[in-house]
Write a protein that binds this DNA or RNA. Sequence first.
DNA 1: GAGGGCGATGTTATCGCTAACATGATCGCT
DNA 2: AGCGATCATGTTAGCGATAACATCGCCCTC
Lengths: 334, 334
Amino acid sequence: MMRNPAMTDVARLAGVSHQTVSRVLNDHPNVREQTRSRVRAAIAELGYRPNRAARTLVTGRSQSIGVVTQNSTLYGPASLLAAFEQAAAEAGFAVSVGSVSVLDRRSIAEAVARHLDHRVAGIMVIAPVTSANEALDDLPADVPLVAIDGDPRRSAALVTVDQVTGARDATRHLLDAGHQTVWHVSGPAEWFDSAGRIEGWREALRAAGAELPPLMPADWTAASGYRAGQMLARMPEVTAIFAANDHLALGILRAMSERGRRVPEEVSIVGFDDVPEAAYFIPPLTTIRPDFGAVARASLALLLEQIESGLPTTSRQTVAPTLVSRASVAPPPR
Amino acid sequence: MMRNPAMTDVARLAGVSHQTVSRVLNDHPNVREQTRSRVRAAIAELGYRPNRAARTLVTGRSQSIGVVTQNSTLYGPASLLAAFEQAAAEAGFAVSVGSVSVLDRRSIAEAVARHLDHRVAGIMVIAPVTSANEALDDLPADVPLVAIDGDPRRSAALVTVDQVTGARDATRHLLDAGHQTVWHVSGPAEWFDSAGRIEGWREALRAAGAELPPLMPADWTAASGYRAGQMLARMPEVTAIFAANDHLALGILRAMSERGRRVPEEVSIVGFDDVPEAAYFIPPLTTIRPDFGAVARASLALLLEQIESGLPTTSRQTVAPTLVSRASVAPPPR
DNA sequence: GAGGGCGATGTTATCGCTAACATGATCGCT
DNA sequence: AGCGATCATGTTAGCGATAACATCGCCCTC
């Protein structure tokens, strides 16, 4: 039974003190080159790997970042998590995921506390809904924290996709194609994403002097898109729809197809997210593509900045999405 | 500046030794009820939370599980990760994600090593491809490890979706509808999921005495499904297709639609995965639904068993998927 | 009533690191 | 030559828990 080699084992083999080994490991300047390589050789020979727990205990900070997210398989949050994880790994940080079933005050506080028990270096919260954002207020202020998709008017360090611009582009794209106005099937009211997209849609209509149709609220699922689509399909005056995400758009497409309303000949549709399948919907979906990688990198940068400086940031960053044009948009029927 | 209270602070306040506090925390039996509640009160008053790093250092095991997965947004792995995370949280374990960009020997070994540096209690590998499985062979044998979707013939502790049965059901479902034979658009060759689904498909055809058409290989994307679909759409003898996953099926649906071949009137299609949107494809897709929650729970149970007993398991478990019948299957045209 | 066992608690050592201070040797400068 | 700065390294003291052993009553038994 052989236990893992510790620093003293390396020290003994290299004929130095364990502190010197520590110095080599942490790239301290004052070590002779010759000693350094002797230590390196000993490390390699023993296959030594530092015990993170010991280091964490003494420094009070582990080299890992805690992520708080809702346990969902939604495309946005899932992509964000994957992208963030990769960025963190490249920066040498482990990522610990603490998912919660509901994003309320208590659950979030508890998830954050669990992360702090592990002495994470920083915390990243995917907080796309109102309740999550409130929870951020009563968290300890001295821990580096970044929110993704939080309340644009409230959170401290925050990175978001520019929902308003994306929605405005989508709406304008439809207006530019010649449509009188654009209907909107929105996401759930408590999501900031929904709010931003509604706002951008309204702005674009107002700017164009177009009539503002009633809002069709839904959740993010294809099922609710389908229900909204069933309504819209039987209204002949509806010729252009901006769906708050691609799955809603999928549901709408099916409702249109069932009712025999052809897309894009009779009705044009734009989605949001650019899920990988969107190009293979029938017809291929014009949509708004957020850059999740950029969001992940920006939030990590913001977090690292706070970790290194020890100071909280109030910086907030916005990542602009791009419109991907496909076949689901055409001029209105004459 | 107030540092976090430590065990000694609680001990002082409660008028006991820190060891007694430790005993209360770990539910040791030999503590008087009165003392126990005094300690509990002190803990509550100070808002004390144990330092996990310290505990990890002394016990040599942290209460967390390391997950190794490929950094992908594929529906299967992502769902699995989410489900596992939730199950682990319920069992009181934190989950640390170590994603790798390629599932080769070196990357996996490295990811596992990083997890061991943190003294994780166990490791879960989502290892759906051949190369990943080889990597499992040269890992230390004394760490609790479970693979999900590994090689059925090799891995030690393993939980998989029963691909063969699922594929057999899908194929038989099409044959039962009256089709002479069933074509198959498969996933990438190096995935076990692909292999299992191909095997099930072949078995079902053989059992029915049906002709075995050539295999159409693809990857998991809608794009490759579309390309395969373009071929299939121009072959009038093709009336039934089993796609290795729903996104492939989506691509095939579009290719059929473009070529004017109606689904299900002229061609029937069955997918695999039951992604949430499958019910809203045009037409709604008949598909095979794996129970990711069950896979996650089974693998966690296997892992906890090893963690508690300290012994490796060779147990392997299989979770049967179910067929979800929707509108994409009909009898062949006469 | 002495010895043994056990239940409740305290004391000490230890896990594997880093921080802080201590020690020598080397070197430049007056 | 003497003296402090600087470099290379060693020594010691924690970080905050658990483990192992020690202690002290107390009750039971013969």
